[in-house]
Design a binder for these strands. Structure first.
Lengths: 169, 169
DNA sequence: TTGGAATGTCAACAAGGCTGACTTAAAGTC
DNA sequence: GACTTTAAGTCAGCCTTGTTGACATTCCAA
């Protein structure tokens, strides 16, 4: 592919000739791949009567421990009422701890309890295994391209959350 | 990027050293990218009080015109009750036509009406525009890698539906 | 000190998944 | 011809997870 005549030299130019069919295949690939992507954690979650919303909350609390509800809201892109319901069950079940802010008592800072960390680990293990297998099968060059396209597909303000987590903080 | 020292040459080998952090970034990239991926059609759909379920049905009826309900079920991976609710509204609204099978009269074959094709076009236009922009921004090599990883991430039986649509039939 | 903004909670509703039970019609089988 | 299986559709009811609206608490700035 890197040697197709006339496609190299200046980046991207050949892609001016993207057919609708090529794009459609990319769209479907996203659809089916996302199903595979969530399948393994979904199985674990449904066993304990949780859903994807719980997974997302647990994931980002793990990544940004001590985050406020508001911050989590902007990452997840749901209403606070929606998040709150999920958060409440996680707190009631002892997976998440909510501490009242010290400087601003309106804020709640969220942390995983040991049980929460345990669930997070099980979920991310399953998802990482799938990811690792796909990466190996596709090869390192493919992975770089994969990431590039995904990053270009994000909404700019969502990309901020994503990149923000990668940058030193 | 293709010139990073030590990452090129033999495919795959360097990725034996995938850190959890690298994998986690891939997972988050999938999460945020999928949000961007569905954002544009979601806007169009919500204007007309439809949801993603309607989009998926319309999309695959467009791709496989004349498909039976059962076949659509296996592509979408939902129950017939769930699909039926969506399908009924689409038929009532005159976007989908259901024809009784000629050889097997138990089957219903599904087709888009002109109005249905119109909606399909508006939805896929929006999604293709996002896809095209991402492809251009990432470059042709990245696109190949993107597709490779996505295909490796699918469940094998879902991949069948996906590939099946690409193969000549 | 008081009014507005920010944060989080409670209640109720809708979409869209799910299971289970059932009907109808057609096809296949003994 | 009677019985079974299959395709599709329907009704009822449940769950998760999104939504809006109303409200309490807390902070801060005029």
């Amino acid at each position: 592919m890197a040697d197709l005549p006339g496609t190299q030299g200046h980046t991207g130019e050949s892609l001016l000739f993207l057919t609708d069919e090529q794009l459609r295949q990319g769209i479907e690939a996203m659809f089916f791949a996302y199903r595979g992507f969530t399948a393994d954690p979904d199985r674990i979650l449904s066993e304990m009567h949780y859903g994807r919303a719980h997974h997302r909350a647990v994931h980002f609390i793990h990544i940004v421990p001590g985050t406020t509800v508001n911050n989590l809201l902007s990452i997840l892109g749901v209403t606070k009422q929606s998040l709150n319901r999920v958060l409440r069950t996680l707190i009631d079940d002892g997976l998440v701890e909510s501490r009242i802010g010290r400087t601003d008592k309106r804020e709640r800072h969220l942390f995983l309890t040991p049980d929460g960390r345990d669930l997070e680990h099980r979920l991310s293990d399953a998802q990482r295994a799938r990811m690792r297998a796909a990466y190996r099968q596709a090869g390192p060059e493919a992975v770089v391209g994969f990431r590039k396209v995904l990053e270009a597909m994000m909404d700019p303000d969502l990309q901020r959350h994503y990149s923000g987590l990668r940058e030193p903080r």
